[in-house]
Write a protein that binds this DNA or RNA. Sequence first.
DNA 1: GCCGTTTTCGGCCCGACTGTTTTCAGTCG
Length: 574
Amino acid sequence: MTNEQIAATFERIASLMEIQGEVIYKTLAYRRAAETLRMLGEDIATVRAEGRLLSLPGVGKAIAEKIEELLDTGSLAFLERLEEEVPPSLLELLEVPDIGPKKAALFWKQAGITNLVELSEAARAGRLRGLPGMGEKSEARILAGIEALGRRSKRLSIHTADRIARRWLETLRATPGVERIEAAGSLRRRKSTVGDLDFVAACHEPAALMTAFTSHPEVERVLGQGENKSSIETTGGVNIQLWVQPPERFGTLLQFVSGSKEHNVRLRELAQKQGLSLSERAIQKSDGSEMLFEEEAGVYAALGLAYIPPELREDRGEIQAALTGRLPQLVERRDIRAEFHCHSTFSDGSASIEAMARAAVQRGLKVLAITDHSAGLAVAGGLSVERLAEQRAEIKRVQDLLGDQILLLQGSEVEILSDGSLGYPDEVLAQLDLVIASLHFSLRQPREVITARLIGAMRNPHVDIIGHPSGRLLPDREGADLDWEAVLAAAAETQTALEIDANPSRLDLDEVYARRAAELGVLLAVDTDAHSPDHLDFLEYGLGVARRAWLEPRHILNCRGDKEILGWLQERKG
DNA sequence: GCCGTTTTCGGCCCGACTGTTTTCAGTCG
């Protein structure tokens, strides 16, 4: 079983136990372990084989034994018993807003409802309103919630979420009394995909802002409206929540709504140990007096912590690091001096080499590699060897035009063909300044085959970077089923850089493997894979992944100067 | 079920909002 499968099993156990009415802390323990598995970056089977299970956060004796049983047998007697006691189809009910474990248990035990269809029928027939704690409004709310499931958008790409947020914030910012308003939540933490949007505002007249929010023309329905917090569903099926506090409490509010939930729980535990109580309104001392924070940084400082950038707030060790002064010096936009992956009209890009180069200069880049597709990818206009020569001439022309404003490299995004060979023969690759090797098709090959295909490319001495290593497409298409440990080990051994493709529909490597790669001494390249000048601005999303992976400039090839980069490439050519 | 610069046992974040309640439970983030 994979890490993800075991994590999903633990989530399932947690939810079933909750419905069963088990103490909440047991279920939390299973969820914590699931999160640990998802963020691991190495194969859980390896961790087990090396006897390190108990060293994982949130894994104790009971959960370690269950991991072992799952690895050994592929099943779990404990879960099978649980599923005999609690019908697993009840988990469907938890998808409905306003239905949690208590309601699910109520519907099951007192109305015999075990799945979503039965729930829907019961609500329509008015059979829910008689149950304890239920009334007509609750029944209607649940019916509306079931209908909303069909409308609900999938997780949004960060780019889409950004655009929606910007549009809304612009409107809301114009409301009288609004001093500050911005996006928080997972969008601010720069997660690769975003579920709901969360906005926070500093405002003296919250009522006016709340009205502006809930009466916005794009509102499909209002899910809740209070003094400090409202939430709506948009016509596009996206849920947005708006939180409001007066300006003097904006710091704690922004901190709280930025999350993650797990980070906040740790932070509040830390506050408690110091005799303080942290909430979205203030830090309260034991004598009842409040400390207010207009700025978020003050909250961390008051708890004795260095400022933790939002991208790190996932309860992955950042609070301990902040306590001991060991937070990473995260890579920033201004550290990036090179772009190694872009396309021009020579293949499937929409702009000329000159236009791309000028756009790169505008953005302050000092090195740009033009990496059009190679032969072997006909759909993307892959270049023949003859066209490659024409392209070299054009790159030289533009280089002469731009002089020392930028260093242009002739590269290629070379296809790794299904049999593992590359789109150009070695003598052609040898003439290029830089070679990215990428997978675009036959991604569903069995693990051993596709892993060998990728590692084979790394072993070619001309290949410098592996482009978008997994081939995933967000939000839906999963990447290749790679043996990541073998891939990362090969990258470390051959000193091949792995790309973090910044295109918001890729973001590949993901943050988990990017962090693991850096730990193993693998060099990362943050590239936009731009097919037009404005795509160069996707860089911010790639940096989001890099920062969430705790990367510093020293981990990233693009942070080096032109001479260093040329030196690195030269060295590789031997 | 996990965990320990107050603990190997006794803790485990905090508040807003809703709907059902006459003071609170459930859900959510």
